[in-house]
Amino acid sequence: MGEVAERIVASADEGLARLLARADAHPDADLSQAYKGRRVADVLTHLHAWHLLLEGWLAEHAAGRVPAYPAAGYSWATLGDLNDALYAAHRPLAYGQAREALAASHGRVLTLVAAVDDAALASPDAVPWLGGDSLGAVAHECLGAHYAWGERVLDAAGVPA
């Protein structure tokens, strides 16, 4: 694993550990005001759903195809609609199921990221369909930076750290 991948993986592992420790301590916390009336489990499924998107992008890219980015039928201008669709798709999961799904997809995505060479992760020109973003930056946004978002939702809801 290259240095860029190591940084992404370390940040992701640390961020997920922090988020899960906090979520596990308060799985039934009221997030209604902070997160559209949603639950702690919904924070976890949101993260899991974005892992699934990243997995798909990486698989399509590895096969030499251009993936639907961010997702089929959506653009970055309709990101709110995409997030609502992801919420609806994963809403039935209870906290334990959401946690398990997140932990599993986290592991799979880290394995995929670790397999990408540093040049492809670091260069904004390496993956043209990303529109000038580097694959490493996108991976970090779906991992460590996204876990920080989850913690900010918990902060806004007053969930103790």
Rank of each mutant, 00 (worst) to 15 (best):
D81E: 13
A72P: 12
N83V: 00
D84Y: 04
A88N: 15
R91C: 08
Q97T: 08
L82E: 00
G73N: 01
L93V: 05
D84T: 12
A94Q: 10
A89L: 11
A98P: 02
Q97G: 12
A98R: 01
A72G: 10
L93E: 03
A77P: 08
A72T: 14
Y69A: 07
G96R: 12
L86T: 09
A94K: 11
W76H: 11
A71V: 11
S75I: 04
P67R: 04
L93P: 02
W76V: 04
S75H: 03
Y74Q: 00
Y74P: 00
Y95K: 03
P92Q: 07
D81T: 12
R91G: 07
L79E: 14
S75N: 04
D84F: 05
Y87W: 07
P92A: 03
A71N: 10
G96C: 06
A89E: 14
A85Q: 01
G73Q: 01
A72Y: 10
A85M: 00
A89K: 11
P92G: 06
A98T: 08
D84A: 07
A88Q: 14
A85G: 00
A88W: 09
L86I: 04
D81V: 03
P67W: 01
A88E: 08
L79M: 15
W76C: 07
Y69V: 13
G80K: 10
P70R: 08
A71W: 11
G80F: 06
L79S: 14
S75Q: 02
H90L: 12
N83D: 05
W76A: 11
N83I: 01
A89T: 09
Y87R: 14
L82V: 00
G96H: 08
D81P: 05
Q97I: 02
S75E: 10
L86F: 05
G96P: 13
Y69E: 12
A68W: 08
